[in-house]
Simulated assay, not measured.
Amino acid sequence: MLERKAIFPNVIELNFQAGHVIGCNVYLVHDGEEWVLIDIGYEESVEEIVELVRELDFPLSKCKTLIATHADVDHGQGLALAKQLLKTTVSAHPKAAKLLSTGDTLRTFAEIEAQNIHLEMPIVETEHIIDEGSIIEVGKIQLEVWSTPGHADSQLAFRMGELLFSGDNIYRDGCVGAIDAHHGSDIPAFIRSLQRIRNSDVKWLLPSHGPIFRKDDAMLDKTIARLQSYLHMADFGTCAIDWPLMDQWEEEIALGKMPE
């Protein structure tokens, strides 16, 4: 049996536990013998994760459910195999459940032709549809489900007391999950989600990638301001809401203004 390296009471992060990066952050939340996993990562990592859970002396039969923060390939490709090995269920947002049930490779970033990325997305059914206000019980622990769209329209976060499992909303360096129109990203929604996190009284953010960190309101303010600027930039194409430069150009043409 391995010694459990809890990062907070009742919370183990399996990359930290393993001492090396397995994939996306995988959080094991437990109370008594009952436990859940938040995200699972790539299919190739599933057997290592399951064996690690076994070595930590968690009964595999007591996995209540596998929770998906959203359906991206780097978070959920391994759900089908993990579900089979653990004989458990999947819990996901309704929009994520649809992508998972069809094995959608485009909306999950499994297929990116321009970067020669061609990954499988094994089909898996979702038994438990969760959304804003849902409660996931793990023993006596309650995970409060937050809908935090922006990176993906199915992005969820999960509050557990002063902790927020924050998905791809925000990372320690102030970066956020990829913004891509084909992915279902929405910048105004992203800003609202970050404002909700910033204005909450949670103390710790547990992201889906990278280190866990104490909530930093100044950093969040800076990130929110950056995303607000994205609303008015051609860089983000159909994710932006306008392109002020073209309005200026139209006015300059009407005035016959020469280049300066």
Rank of each mutant, 00 (worst) to 15 (best):
W146C: 11
V73F: 03
V29P: 09
D104T: 09
K98Q: 14
H70G: 08
I136N: 04
Q142I: 01
S147Q: 15
E111C: 08
S134D: 02
L66F: 02
W35R: 04
F58P: 10
E33S: 13
G78S: 12
Y42S: 14
M121P: 10
V36F: 09
E132N: 12
H30Y: 15
I129K: 05
L56D: 04
H30K: 04
L99K: 10
F109L: 12
V36M: 03
I67H: 07
H75Q: 12
D31R: 09
H93A: 08
T69D: 11
E51N: 15
E137S: 13
K140C: 01
M121L: 09
L52V: 11
H30D: 03
K62I: 00
H70R: 07
V53F: 04
P94M: 07
K95I: 03
I67P: 04
Q115N: 12
E44P: 00
L106T: 13
A96G: 09
D39T: 13
D74G: 14
G78P: 12
D72S: 14
E132A: 14
E120Y: 10
N116H: 12
E43L: 14
M121Q: 15
E125S: 15
G32F: 00
V29C: 10
E44L: 06
H75N: 13
L60F: 07
H30I: 00
V124D: 01
R54H: 13
L86Q: 01
L37H: 08
R107S: 15
T108Q: 03
A68C: 14
L66H: 03
S91T: 07
P59S: 02
I49E: 01
A97F: 06
V36A: 04
I49Q: 01
K87Q: 15
E43F: 08
